[in-house]
């Protein structure tokens, strides 16, 4: 997904290079359109990066659980503790970030 966004951004950059060829009257409109598309793509890239990150994390957990299941192995208390610590840390970090976002809200 991230690669797709990158390719679209490159296509947009290439299109911008043709802007001087656009007739004078329509150049401003074309420029505004390209700028809007660039902004949308830049927001899209950040979303795609987040989603790719989540996909990688979930795939890593799945691989770990698949290995456990294939070996017929039970979850150890240490592994469970590590999972619980991760959940607590993620929750605490999320709530702190949300508090900051709410404090900065108009």
């Amino acid at each position: 997904m991230f690669n797709l966004m990158l390719q679209l951004q490159m296509l947009l950059a290439a299109l911008s290079a043709f802007l001087p060829l656009v007739p004078e009257k329509q150049r401003t409109r074309a420029g505004v359109f390209l700028e809007m598309a660039a902004q949308a793509l830049s927001a899209g890239s950040s979303v795609a990066a987040n989603l790719d990150d989540l996909a990688a994390k979930l795939a890593s957990v799945r691989a770990e659980v698949e290995a456990m299941a294939a070996a017929g192995r039970a979850v150890t208390p240490e592994e469970l503790d590590a999972a619980l610590i991760r959940v607590r840390a993620a929750s605490a970090s999320f709530r702190a970030a949300l508090e900051i976002a709410e404090a900065g809200a108009p």
């Binding site: 989540l54 957990v61 959940v87 993620a90 970090s93």
Partner: peptide, 11 residues
């Protein structure tokens, strides 16, 4: 639990 933690990290 791990999936939930990963989702909350992204959130």
């Amino acid at each position: 639990l791990h999936a939930y933690a990963a989702i909350v990290e992204e959130a």
